[in-house]
Design a protein around this nucleic acid. Structure first.
Lengths: 155, 155
DNA sequence: CAATATTGCTATCTTACATAGCAATCAGAA
DNA sequence: TTCTGATTGCTATGTAAGATAGCAATATTG
């Protein structure tokens, strides 16, 4: 069917590249996480927000956006959607900032999401030697914080 | 009473998560690569294709798409654009498949792109202990190939 | 040969993310 | 205090990656 080079051979010049592997691995994990979270009715971004707000009740919407690298413009409808689902509440802390809190069902969703994510991670971590897992975290953390402004990119 | 946590504290529940770090690190590296390649007038996907075709002259368009996880529908305009830029040539190998080859200027662009990517990678690899760099590749490769069909996701 | 699969392609939809701008509000300097 | 500039939430809109659907031509297979 396919002519000369096998697909393995074709990608040879790429598999040695760190950035390529990173993107690939990230895609694979995101896909897996997406599927698993869909069962609970959440997208990865939403689960992330629930976990973050759950860990810091009353945190400010703009701060959440800053930490996750989500722009104000995209943050607004995201939070509104979660609020509309009854998972979190917005309460003004001053004339402009909104403090976020999980509702009881939001708390429940957060717990579910965390369980899903734990299982998800465990599956992948099991593929790695413990030495590699440790180094992986070290390396990824170093790369992740390597931004000009210490500010993060999109979540 | 929940005071405003620092951004560092806010993201605490996330930095321990492998998938989160992966996505972040991937974004950081892609952003860097994007900027650097823009200088040469290429996007990451385009550079990747040039490198791949350059390493395997006469390879089939559909195979390139398969390896990079790019769907036929999106592959067509991508290749056409590179051909329109005079960087590669399509030549029918049978009634339906197209063999891809770099033009001389495509070859030049590929060399430039490879230089840019080498520098790009060196910069990030320099941040890591050699032990971590090695483990990082091992780990990423394992995660990357962990797909149901052995087929890759989007590039 | 007939049935099926593959390839390249166009058109279109969805979704993540970015930009622009607005009204309200807060904070710091004069 | 008052003026100025920055911040917050928000709406509307643009852009770009990727996915889906379907077509015509061709190749492969039973």
């Amino acid at each position: 069917m396919t002519k000369s080079p096998t697909l393995e051979a074709l990608q040879a010049p790429l598999v040695s590249r760190l950035g390529y592997l990173l993107r690939r691995a990230s895609t694979v994990m995101m896909a897996d996480l997406g599927e698993r979270l869909a069962v609970v009715g959440l997208r990865p971004v939403e689960a992330t927000i629930l976990i973050l707000v759950g860990a810091h009740p009353g945190c400010i919407q703009s701060d959440v956006g800053r930490v996750l690298g989500i722009k104000r413009a995209n943050m607004a409808p995201l939070i509104s959607a979660l609020a509309a689902k009854g998972l979190l509440e917005k309460s003004p802390v001053d004339g402009r900032s909104l403090a976020l809190t999980l509702t009881p069902s939001g708390e429940a969703a957060k717990v579910e999401a965390e369980a899903v994510m734990d299982a998800h991670e465990a599956r992948f971590e099991a593929m790695l030697a413990s030495r590699d897992a440790a180094s992986l975290r070290t390396a990824l953390a170093l790369i992740s914080w390597d931004t000009a402004d210490g500010q993060m990119g999109p979540a």
